[in-house]
Simulated assay, not measured.
Amino acid sequence: MADETALHDFPSLFSLKGKIAVVTGGSRGLGLNAASAFLQAGCATVFISSRKAKACDAAVAQLNALPSLAPGARAIAAPADCSSLAGVRSLVEQVRRHADHVDILFANAGATWGEAFDTHPDTAFSKVMDLNVRGVFLLAQQFAPLLEARATRDDPSRIIITASVAGLSVGTLGPQATFGYSASKAAVIHLGRNLAVELAPRHVLVNSICPGFFPTKMANGLLALTGGVDRHAQANPAGRLGRPEDIAGAVVYLASRAGSHVNGAAIEIDGGSLWSRGGLFEANAPEPKL
Rank of each mutant, 00 (worst) to 15 (best):
F137I: 04
A107I: 01
C56N: 09
N284V: 08
N263M: 02
L173D: 15
N263R: 02
A6H: 11
G167C: 07
V206Q: 00
T178V: 02
G272H: 03
R96C: 14
A166Q: 10
F143D: 08
L105T: 08
V229I: 14
A86F: 02
P156G: 11
S184V: 04
L138V: 15
E282K: 12
H8Q: 13
T152F: 02
R51P: 01
T216G: 09
A6T: 09
K17Y: 12
A99Q: 12
A44S: 15
N194V: 13
P79V: 10
F106I: 13
A78D: 04
K289T: 13
G135Q: 12
E93M: 10
D118V: 10
L13S: 13
I160K: 04
D103A: 14
A41F: 09
F38M: 04
V165N: 05
G25R: 00
E93V: 11
E148I: 02
A248E: 14
H120N: 15
R28A: 15
K127N: 14
D103C: 08
A140S: 13
N64L: 10
L225P: 05
N132I: 11
F125G: 05
T226S: 14
T178L: 01
T216Q: 06
P145I: 09
A151V: 03
H232V: 11
A61C: 12
A107H: 00
V229L: 14
G249S: 13
I104F: 04
A285K: 03
W113H: 13
E148T: 07
T162K: 00
G31C: 05
